[in-house]
Design a protein around this nucleic acid. Structure first.
Length: 267
DNA sequence: CGCTTTTGACCCGCGC
DNA sequence: GCGCGGGTCAAAAGCG
């Protein structure tokens, strides 16, 4: 997240928002910078999505589950522009969060209902079976299993396509709201909002864990960009809305602005 | 009390 | 046909 512009960037946060006293001009400036930041994030997201679309999965990648059907269905013909429908089975590797150390939780924004668990032969970690819990008629299934070589990685296999819209966005997890186990709604990325440090961190699961690993398929594979942007905006709005300091400053600024306009009109 | 998770049993496909 | 392994079912337990 490097700043493309020449403005001084705060060391730890994306948004250098608040100061002890906030004049109107400063708030306007900050709002303007937030807008720019938002546009910049959008561009970067587009770039990430573009990378994803042109991503070529390594056919020879070693994986814990070298099932030929998976290899065939691993990913779409990414490099080409063929109009083939997406494969029914998609494999997603996600780095498990520490809080999910024991749970097979892969965050993807949908609600899942666990219906089975099995220990498989080639992996000491149990495989969990999930069905989409949002719509009873939704045929999508998900299998989640911890990677045998790297227990911090979760391997999720998605089968089928959702026949409904994504769950309510309030269901998305951010560190600032809820992250309890038991509910399986989640994203393969983390939107971490730290109200103390005043930082908003967007963490995409986009890293490979080594040359001998299959590629990590990130959020872009599963969550459409527009959906993701909406979530991001919602998170930011909720965060700002809950920040009493910001709301107070905003109210002050708006009031001052209105007073100023009124006085200009009168005089 | 209803919903979710757990877990052992059962089913089915595949290879030998 | 048999055994093995993966996937699913469903009753019981847990939880809010």
């Amino acid at each position: 997240m490097e700043n493309a512009e020449a403005e001084p960037s705060p060391p730890s946060g994306l948004l250098p928002l608040f100061g002890p006293s906030v004049p109107v001009e400063s708030l306007e400036e900050k709002l303007r910078r937030m807008s720019e930041e938002s546009r910049r994030l959008t561009r970067e997201l587009d770039a990430i999505l573009a990378d994803r679309c042109s991503y070529q999965p390594r056919a020879s990648a070693t994986t814990a589950s070298p099932a030929p059907s998976n290899a065939a269905a691993m990913e779409d013909t990414a490099g080409g522009v063929t109009a083939e429908p997406r494969p029914k089975v998609r494999t997603v590797r996600v780095r498990a969060e520490p809080s999910d150390a024991e749970a097979n939780v892969v965050k993807d924004g949908y609600q899942w209902r666990k219906y089975g668990q099995k220990v498989t032969r080639d992996n000491p970690y149990p495989r969990a079976y999930f069905r989409c819990a949002y719509a009873p008629s939704c045929p999508v299934k998900k299998k989640v299993q911890r990677c045998a070589e790297d227990s911090s990685m979760l391997v999720a296999q998605y089968e089928g396509e959702h026949n409904h819209a994504q769950c309510a966005q309030s269901e998305f997890v951010s560190d600032a709201s809820t992250s309890q186990a038991g509910t399986s709604h989640s994203l393969p990325c983390s939107i971490s909002i730290n109200s103390l440090g005043r930082t908003i961190t967007l963490g995409l699961t986009n890293q490979g864990s080594g040359s001998n690993e299959t590629a990590v398929v990130g959020v872009a594979e599963m969550v459409a960009a527009q959906e993701f942007r909406k979530v991001l905006v919602d998170e930011m709005v909720n965060f700002l809305r809950n920040d009493s300091e910001f709301m107070e400053s905003l109210t002050t600024a708006v009031t001052a602005r209105m007073m100023q306009k009124n006085s200009n009109r009168i005089f």
